[in-house]
Computed example of a mutant assay.
Amino acid sequence: MRRTNSRQATGRGTARRRWGHISGGLILTLAGTLGTAVPAAAPATGQAAGPTAPAPGPVRQGTDEDGPDTARRSESECNLSTGPYQKDVERHLGLVVDGKQSAADCAAIQTFQREHDVVPAQGYAGLYTYRAVMWRQALAEGDAVRGCPDTSGVVVCIDMNRQVLWVEDAGTILFRPVPARTGSPDYPTRSGWFEIYKREKEFWSTLYDGPMPFAQFFDGGQALHASYRNIWEDPGSHGCVNLRYDDGKTLWDVLRLGDAVYVWGRRTGG
């Protein structure tokens, strides 16, 4: 049975829960880049934890993020093509919202991409950049972050629409929103109510022959765990919920066996 006692002051009330059944699942292989942690009870902006594992730089691959003619551009060269999320990115960055790329737009988007490890950082308003925007917007919502039902205790909230994860305790944010990568269309993360039923700090996937640091299983083989890949990139996972390494490490200290997990929405992209 899961714990129902709140770890903080009583929040906004309770809600009836529908618990998912634990079933067989798939486990993800990891490779990629180190992220930046948002501590569990952090103030408004996250602080980066010290390096905890060696990792290469951002993975470079051809994607929708690249835009036209990216292969002929250097990493620092601006891409003046209008991206599919141009207006959304312009609005978030306080630019003129006209849906048309300009040199000034490109420079501002490049700066945002570099600050958030979006690769390639060429100023193109593609899906990876939009995912970073959605995370920053969720972070800015504070305790009003939307989507997770009110409960009487701890619940891990996984919004697959925005690709973000946070933890609430009786309606109060216990772990601020962080970027997440859920399952690809071929291996979707299952939605519904679950519980953390197994935790293993140094789990190794025999199915995919790869590490799953700070693995916290909630539905068969599907787990919350740290990843060495760039968090924004496709493809999605094999059903697990990937986190940046330091976020996964911090989350390990926040959760316990029996904590609730609520998953909803649908991942956009691969």
Rank of each mutant, 00 (worst) to 15 (best):
K198D: 10
E233G: 11
E141F: 00
Y245D: 11
G142S: 09
C240E: 09
F218L: 06
E141G: 02
R199Y: 00
A180L: 12
L224P: 00
R146L: 10
F214A: 01
E195V: 13
R199A: 01
L224Y: 01
V145Q: 05
T189H: 07
Y228L: 10
M212H: 07
G248L: 04
D246H: 07
T206D: 15
A144M: 07
F214D: 05
W166A: 12
N242L: 09
D186K: 14
R146Y: 10
S237E: 09
S227F: 05
Q163N: 13
H225D: 02
T250V: 09
E200M: 05
W204G: 04
N161F: 13
R146E: 14
W252I: 09
F194Y: 15
A223F: 08
Q137L: 11
C148I: 02
S184Q: 12
L243V: 06
T250K: 05
F217P: 00
K249W: 05
Q137F: 01
R199F: 00
G220L: 02
P179K: 10
R176W: 05
V178S: 12
L243N: 06
H238E: 10
Y197D: 14
V167D: 04
P235Q: 08
D234G: 14
L139N: 01
L257W: 04
C157K: 09
A260N: 11
I196K: 00
A144F: 02
S227G: 07
A260C: 03
W204A: 08
R229T: 12
V154D: 00
R136D: 11
H225M: 06
G210V: 05
G153S: 15
R136H: 13
K249Q: 14
R244H: 08
I231M: 08
K198F: 12
H238D: 08
D247I: 03
Q163R: 10
D259G: 01
V254E: 13
M134G: 00
G210S: 15
P149G: 09
A226I: 06
L251Q: 05
A170N: 15
R256L: 09
A226R: 04
G142D: 11
Y197C: 02
L251T: 02
E202P: 00
V241P: 01
G147P: 03
E200Y: 01
D259Q: 06
S152M: 06
Q163H: 09
L165F: 06
Y187C: 03
R136Q: 13
D253T: 13
L165N: 03
V164T: 15
L224C: 02
S184D: 15
W232T: 06
T182H: 07
G236I: 02
F217R: 00
L224V: 07
W193I: 01
G210C: 08
D159Y: 11
